[in-house]
Amino acid sequence: MRSEVPMFITLFFGLFFIISAFIVHPAYKSAAQELNNWTLIIISFAYVLGVINVARIHAKKLEERRPGWAYSVMTLFGMLIMIVFGIFVPARLYGGYETGSLFSWLFDNGQVPMQATMFSLLAFFIASAAFRAFRVRSVTASLLAVTAVIVMAGRVSVGELMWSDFPRFVEWIMGDLQTAGQRAVKIGAALGAVATGLKIILGLERSYFSGE
């Protein structure tokens, strides 16, 4: 029963939502909408589980004084402050999440610059990796390197100083040449997604509920 019940639920709701794309009867549509609302509520609970999980993992790390435990203190402290001030503290004490609250101040002056900094560091690592790893070792690697250089030049303004039609040439590479490859990847991925979906609905793929 431990396997059969989840498999039946998956089969029932999987088929229900597939069929809902083809049936326009109001009663069926209304039922599909209701189930969508259930799904949204269930997904929202994943956040609660996520918070509990993060707290549990970092509390354990802190308790055992494992390497990097100081980062766990910061994580737990940051999470606690944002939750308490965002949800429980009234607006007159800088609570809530509107502009002027502690939550928004920490977000704008803490999370935004830190996350932007992490992303910006990519430029430095890409430059280093491009110098070390982007080698013309074979014909295909050479083609990739030449195309990358052309597209990189065309995605910024200097390219058009060399040749006025350079941006249009790059658009042709992006819109025609690379699109063909992208379509192949997308079609392959879509077929894979359909196959995986069917395997889950039909109970052939069960790792999602039992670790099989």
Partner: peptide, 24 residues
């Protein structure tokens, strides 16, 4: 910001060319 990004791109292109020239 385009000027900064343009120069950033050209520095990366420069490093790709330099890296490959040295490799060959």
């Amino acid at each position: 910001a385009m000027d900064a990004q343009a120069l950033g791109h050209y520095i990366i292109i420069g490093f790709i060319i330099l890296g490959n020239a040295l490799y060959l």
